[in-house]
Design a protein around this nucleic acid. Structure first.
Length: 351
DNA sequence: CGAATTTGACCGCA
DNA sequence: TGCGGTCAAATTCG
């Protein structure tokens, strides 16, 4: 794990600059349309964030400890949410979303299993709060539910989603949504795999033109923004080395982008493999990070959930859109000596 | 009518 | 053997 940071730094800086460029492009487009001031503000913040991060990365001489992050930007200024009772210590046993992939590639099951463990995985905890602010452009990722299961010991069922473009674009991204037993306003969303799809790309989605899918679950698609603004977010990021050791970065979220995700982020599978993954997959599409923000415009906020299930559903979608619109890589801010009170006052976005 | 969701069955792993 | 995760037919939605 040691050495080679310069290359990674280059990669990270490059990524940040690309992000900044994309935000600038978006902003340019926004300027030609009657978009809201908030939207523009968000884009500007994104640009600034990108450059700031590039600079910090550039100056940083220590090892890069953290990872790409799906960025659940949070409306800062909020308190961090207590760790959910459900999890968080992500245990590595997992998933098989790429089972099909393994079959298609005729891989040995063991290899498939290994491959599975290499997948980026992170957990985001989100809480619903009536008068919270939530901001951020709609990322545009859309998810398709493929299952729901009652989990032993859990009061609420867990829902399983995968990228809508899984079949058409082989996008491996998927996520699980689990409502907290103790705090019914809290949800834990676990993401696996990066989005490789183009459509749903966070930066390619046009907030103003929701897809039909997104309108589906919302009573009124146009209310998405309103609903989003009702979420409050606080954020905590953790990273964990799958090799056993764990590396936790618990902190306010200085680089977050205003969005709806509230709560806690927990990363896994980050390490060198993550970077390798990025570099091998980067380049195509607007975003190359393996941790593209998983989000979904779909069905944001059903204004009147009729059941727990509905609420979970609602949240899953909400979460999607809440995750930051941009892929971002985080470093150990402690190590970098970065002031948690990052200059960007996200709170300014809150109503 | 096509696409998304629901839900019971099935499968692999610990 | 039980549990978590996925499949896929049936159903619902737009």
């Amino acid at each position: 794990m040691e050495g080679g940071w310069s290359y990674e730094k280059k990669m990270l800086i490059s990524e940040q600059l690309i992000q900044g460029t994309n935000f600038a492009k978006q902003l340019k487009v926004q300027l030609n349309s009657p978009s809201s001031a908030e939207t523009r503000e968000v884009l500007i913040q994104g640009i600034l964030n990108s450059f700031e991060k590039s600079l910090r990365i550039f100056r940083w001489n220590g090892p890069i400890k953290c990872q790409p992050q799906p960025v659940a930007a949070a409306a800062l200024g909020t308190t961090s949410v207590p760790a959910s009772p459900l999890s968080v210590n992500g245990n590595p046993r997992d998933d098989d979303f790429d089972r099909d992939l393994a079959v298609n590639e005729q891989l040995d099951s063991r290899e498939a299993s290994k491959k599975r463990k290499m997948l980026p995985k992170w957990t985001d905890q989100v809480r619903i709060s009536p008068d919270a602010g939530l901001e951020g452009p709609q990322d545009g990722y859309s998810w398709r539910k493929y299952g729901q299961k009652d989990i032993l010991g859990a009061k609420y069922p867990r829902s399983y989603y995968r990228c809508t473009y899984r079949n058409t674009q082989n996008c491996p991204a998927n996520k699980q949504v689990q409502r907290s037993d103790h705090d019914h306003t809290m949800f834990e969303i676990t993401y696996r795999g990066k989005h490789t799809c183009i459509h749903g790309g966070p930066l390619t989605a046009a907030p103003t033109s929701p897809k039909k899918h997104e309108l589906k679950q919302a009573d009124h698609g146009n209310h998405q923004q309103d609903a989003l603004t009702r979420f409050r977010t606080g954020l905590r990021v953790e990273t964990e080395n799958l090799d056993g050791g764990s590396d936790v970065t618990d902190m306010p979220y200085p680089f977050s982008f205003p969005s709806s995700s509230a709560g806690l982020l927990h990363f896994e599978n980050y390490s060198p493999s993550g970077l390798a993954y990025m570099s091998s997959h980067g380049g195509n599409g607007i975003l190359s990070s393996p941790f593209l923000s998983p989000s979904t415009p779909e069905g944001l906020i059903n204004s009147r959930p009729r059941s727990e299930s509905d609420l979970t559903e609602l949240f899953s979608t909400t979460n999607s859109s809440t995750n930051s619109p941009i892929p971002e890589w985080e470093f150990s801010l402690k190590d970098m000596g970065i002031d948690p009170n990052f200059p960007f006052d996200i709170a300014g976005f809150l109503p």
